[in-house]
Simulated assay, not measured.
Amino acid sequence: MEIQHNAFAKIIDNIHDGLYIVDKNRVITYWNKAAERITGFSAAEVTGHSCSENILTHIDSEGNSLCTGMCPLAETMADGIMRETEVYLHHKNGQRVPVSVRVTPLTDISGQVVGGIELFTDISSKSANVLKIKELEKLALLDHLTKLANRACVERELTGRLEEFCRYGNPFGIFLMDIDHFKNVNDTYGHDVGDLVLKFVAETFTANSRAFDLYGRWGGEEFIAVIRNITPEAHSKLGDRIRMLIENAYIIHDGKKLHVTISMGATIILKQDTMDSLVKRADTLLYQSKAEGRNRMTYG
């Protein structure tokens, strides 16, 4: 059975995964509906533009920029080898979203590479976080601006994790995080822009969290995360990745990219800890990060 061209195009446009096509100069020629949903950018905003214009500003897990250099799509177009990897794209709202990408060369009838195709899947714990938000709303435990757990909810979570640690020895850690120079953002751009910054920082947390971890707003521009069943090494690595993702996230304001960074204190539960001692230690480490230049994590 021969599939009509328009029927084939309709199938591609309505698949669950994001898909886009570039020509040999890496100019985007096609952008499907799922790509619009996952990134927040419409087809009209990206088609006709080159990847090198850095609209999506893909970065890898080390924070390296991919769009201006040899990204997986460019490498595949150069050597004809299909690739799969995980990267972090920039959502139009500002947050970083983890995606699994599969790239393949696009060839003409003679086998010459004339472009490339990238298929990408949102691998954040989005569905689990949506359910978590609904549960928190019912219990009045949600911060309504950021859609994170509020302080009362975090304190309840910490109490539960401490009891679990005392009974079964299950380890957990926390991150205490503060947006650097946030007062300057409010003073320079206004509180509406400040609210947008708080939201995209929060959305970067939730998009890159495990379903059973909890991220909350501790107060003002300060956030906290309760990370279950984690080793010190994995905890430190996760914290530094979160810091890097925030550093590489941004919103567009008056046609310019507005970036922020976070400072962080990270620590693991100890046998003698109470909730107060655990949070106080993280707070001391957070202020050490600020004293040493900000945009860093101090672990202890």
Rank of each mutant, 00 (worst) to 15 (best):
C166Y: 12
E222P: 04
A35W: 08
T231W: 11
N54P: 08
L198M: 13
E36W: 08
I3F: 00
T298W: 05
M82Y: 07
T57Y: 12
D240V: 02
V197K: 02
T146R: 01
E203H: 08
L278V: 07
C153H: 12
D192S: 12
R281A: 12
K33Y: 15
N54G: 12
K147V: 11
S263E: 04
E62F: 01
A282Q: 01
H181R: 02
F182C: 02
S125N: 13
V185R: 07
K134W: 10
Y20N: 11
I262N: 05
I55W: 14
M82N: 14
C153T: 03
Y287P: 08
G173F: 02
A225T: 09
F120P: 05
F120H: 06
V193H: 04
D283W: 02
Y299P: 03
G80L: 12
H90R: 07
Y215G: 12
K199D: 15
K199N: 13
Y88P: 03
T57V: 07
G160V: 01
S125R: 07
P98W: 02
V279C: 06
S127V: 04
W31G: 06
H5E: 15
F165C: 12
L162G: 04
I38E: 07
T85F: 07
M177A: 11
D276R: 09
V114Y: 09
F8Y: 05
L148V: 10
L56I: 13
F165S: 09
S277C: 11
L158M: 05
Y30S: 15
T159D: 15
H90T: 00
G115A: 05
N25C: 07
F120A: 06
V193F: 03
M244K: 02
H235I: 14
E84F: 01
E157M: 08
N229F: 02
D276K: 06
G69V: 14
S100I: 04
D240A: 04
S263P: 09
K134R: 10
S277R: 05
T85K: 07
L89E: 13
L19I: 15
N186E: 09
V114Q: 05
N54M: 09
P98I: 08
N248S: 04
M297C: 15
D273V: 00
I252Y: 01
W31N: 02
T39A: 10
Y88E: 10
